[in-house]
Design a protein around this nucleic acid. Structure first.
Length: 129
DNA sequence: AGCCTGACTTTGT
DNA sequence: GACAAAGCCAGGC
């Protein structure tokens, strides 16, 4: 992963707090665009949204999903280690791994994705940021 | 209004 | 390499 160290190059470009609702909406929008069999990290999404400093909010957004019918494949979102840290938040905790396995995503120890780098889907790149 | 928590990430010891 | 701490922002109490 390219981790640049922009001291002055790092522009917050964060939206107003009033646009906070957009944050959740954007998160859902990005997650929904994750191709099948691919996964991404909270940080990647956060970065794409311009709030890489608040990757937690991405996960928080998942927990704050207004309606599951939004088809937000939260199971395709893991932490930067490729670990299914959020599986406990699924209805059955095993649902996350099942969904991933169903999409041909290999999971090791039922908590970590194998070849995470290969199935990693970076919105900033795929969506052409 | 203030304090606490959290599905993260990075950095330092 | 493992553990601890800090920073981030939004929501709940």
């Amino acid at each position: 992963m390219a981790k640049a160290k922009p001291s002055a190059d790092k522009l917050p470009a964060v939206k107003s707090k009033k646009d906070s609702f957009t944050f959740f909406d954007d998160v859902y929008a990005v997650v929904r665009q994750i191709p099948k069999g691919r996964v991404t990290s909270y940080g990647a999404i956060a970065k794409y949204l311009g709030t890489e400093l608040s990757a937690r909010m991405v996960g928080w957004a998942m927990n704050a999903v207004p309606d599951q019918k939004l088809k937000v494949p939260a199971h395709r979102v893991v932490n930067r280690n490729g670990m299914l840290t959020g599986r406990h938040h699924f209805n059955p905790p095993t649902l996350m791994e099942e969904l991933l396995l169903k999409e041909k995503v290999k999971v090791k120890d039922n908590e970590k994705i194998i070849d995470f780098e290969k199935v990693f889907w970076d919105p900033a790149i795929e969506l052409g940021l």
